[in-house]
Design a protein around this nucleic acid. Sequence first.
DNA 1: TACAATTTTCACAAATTACTGAAAATACAG
DNA 2: CTGTATTTTCAGTAATTTGTGAAAATTGTA
Lengths: 180, 180
Amino acid sequence: MKITPMKQSLVLHFGEMGSRWGLNRTLGQMYAVIVLTEAPLNADQISEALQISRSNVSMGLKELKSWNLIKLHHVPGDRKEYFSAPSDIWEIARTLVVERRKRELDPTLSTLRDALMEQPSNESDEYTQMRVQQMHDLMEMVTLWTNEMQGMSSEKLSALLKLGEGISKLLDVKDKLLLR
Amino acid sequence: MKITPMKQSLVLHFGEMGSRWGLNRTLGQMYAVIVLTEAPLNADQISEALQISRSNVSMGLKELKSWNLIKLHHVPGDRKEYFSAPSDIWEIARTLVVERRKRELDPTLSTLRDALMEQPSNESDEYTQMRVQQMHDLMEMVTLWTNEMQGMSSEKLSALLKLGEGISKLLDVKDKLLLR
DNA sequence: TACAATTTTCACAAATTACTGAAAATACAG
DNA sequence: CTGTATTTTCAGTAATTTGTGAAAATTGTA
């Protein structure tokens, strides 16, 4: 499968960014080509488009599956598997946020909780625990938010983000206007 | 500088997480020990606490500076430089969000804009551009939000996060009640 | 300015992570 | 069940990233 120059340059960029996004170069490229292509692709097509080995594609797909980022298709009369990305970009964003939270926050939250259970043996540990508590509380709030995000429709999510600076004003008047 | 077992295990954990957070192991460990210690530390203390070379500490500090994550102190009569983290955990969070955005979103936003300027040469590129537009719009909204975050006090930020599920309700009544 | 303390840089080494081809496993049509 | 298409696994290698010590640069004091 050949790829247009426009797609090519986007794919290269997403490859470079991939590593900054907790994925890696190949994964970034793979997801880019899948997201930017309308028709579902099979592993051989991806392998050819990105000039990487078939086995590398297989491993990459496995990881994209673990991120819940791809949909699986079957074409009648064809034994190959085809992959596509959700057509709703908000769904992709939601998934990304949740999966990153799982990987970046959840394990830490658990470690922080463990540290809070311990008995501080001296003053220095008391300070440490205080900071741990602060981090814990903050991360827990973020977790609540990402959970909230999961339940929101794309429309609502979009409306929320569009608020932009409005969110600050909205917060100011919140107490006056609602929620008892 | 020796380190208590509690701090030790936290430092090790943050080291492991560091790589998932766009930093790396050493940077994660370094920042952990700085955040969890009340008194500002000098490079030698960090080097000893983490059992890493002095030069590695120097490079790590350089990077933490580029993230705006540390404050610099001077102790009278001592030529060494001392480092600490902001005492307000929300300030740390704000900084992290903004710096990650700079690294993870800004370059992509610019690439997406470039792609949107191009003339699609065929149907496939038209689809690609449509997706690029969606991604661009989403990322731009996120950027607006992170900017908004920068201007918010820690109290306000905390209130916003505490909203949790309330945010959804708040959005529902917003249209009815205010902000024309 | 000279000197010692401290920090930074950088070439190389060590460690980690990613990629490949070959072989094994799986899926499925006849 | 057999044979073939397809996918997955995995050991070895390649590429990348990270860490070190020695040397250079910088800082501040006398």
